[in-house]
């Protein structure tokens, strides 16, 4: 009887071991299934891989095409033409810092006390003084103009802002120093001609004015914005079909941004 019982206990213990092992194994099996990638995963992965390879191949083909186009006769010449055009455009739009002979004009408020009946406003330098002086300089053949180190370009406007004068968005304070590149003698002659702007509008009010001929002036590049939000290429541009005008404008804007970046980096 005792022996029988002992065998029962042994068999029961073996059964316990069997049950535990079954559960552990079951867990491992289900865990294995849980860790498996979802169905369709491999197809997706291979699809992505195929697309990546395709993209790489197409990119290589495009690079080859670009290289072939560069090799074409005339490509280099066209590139050189563009470089020259780019240089001229940058010169014309004031994106290059320049140096050379020219005039330095210093303009200051009248130092003396005016007569009691004279409007004190007449004894100050106003924005229109600068405007007219710069205008005189352009007319006299100046190639580049800067006021207090601010390059004057086609879009630069002079404004009165209380005690200050604005050139574009740059604030100017006296003394106003105008630098102009060009033939110094010719510029001076044009400014000081009898009956000219200086004789008529500046000297009578006793504004401080000194004109110096310089052999080596430095004029910085234009650092302001180049924004063309509303302007489109005009109809006279027969090279640009009407449906391409928008693109051309975007192209010009990107081009202008690139130039500004270069101008800043060059400072």
């Amino acid at each position: 009887m005792l022996r029988v019982r002992g065998s029962q206990v042994v068999l029961g213990l073996a059964s316990v071991l069997l049950g535990m092992l079954l559960v552990f194994q079951y867990r491992a099996g289900t865990g294995l299934r849980r860790d498996l990638p979802p169905p369709g995963y491999n197809e997706l992965a291979s699809h992505i891989e195929r697309l990546e390879v395709e993209a790489r191949v197409r990119g290589q083909r495009l690079e080859e095409e670009i290289g072939a186009l560069r090799e074409l006769p005339g490509a280099a010449k066209a590139g050189a033409d563009y470089d020259e055009e780019l240089r001229l455009l940058r010169l014309a739009s004031g994106l290059y810092p320049l140096s050379g002979p020219g005039l330095e004009i210093v303009l200051e408020d009248s130092g003396g006390e005016g007569l009691a009946f004279v409007d004190p406003n007449l004894l100050l330098v106003h924005y229109d003084h600068l405007l007219f002086l710069v205008n005189e300089l352009w007319v006299a053949g100046a190639e580049a103009v800067a006021v207090n180190g601010e390059r004057v370009v086609a879009q630069t406007g002079f404004t009165c802002a209380g005690p200050l004068i604005l050139a574009g968005t740059k604030r100017l304070a006296p003394p106003y120093v105008i630098h102009a590149l060009g033939d110094p003698a010719a510029l001076r002659a044009a400014l000081t001609m009898p009956g000219g702007f200086i004789e008529a509008q500046i000297q009578p009010y006793g504004l401080g004015l000194t004109i110096t001929e310089k052999s080596d002036l430095f004029i910085p590049a234009y650092r302001g914005d180049l924004v063309f939000d509303h302007a489109r290429l005009g109809r006279e541009d027969s090279h640009t079909p009407p449906d391409k005008r928008e693109d051309a404008c975007v192209h010009i804007r990107a081009y202008a941004e690139e130039l500004t970046e270069d101008g800043r980096a060059g400072d």
């Binding site: 029962q8 206990v9 068999l11 029961g12 213990l13 073996a14 059964s15 316990v16 071991l17 069997l18 049950g19 535990m20 092992l21 079954l22 559960v23 552990f24």
Partner: peptide
């Protein structure tokens, strides 16, 4: 009787697991 003890052991093992 032996079946009972075996099945009981199996159930207990599953429980332990």
């Amino acid at each position: 009787m032996i079946w009972v003890s075996s099945l009981f052991g199996l159930a207990f093992g599953v429980f332990l697991g």
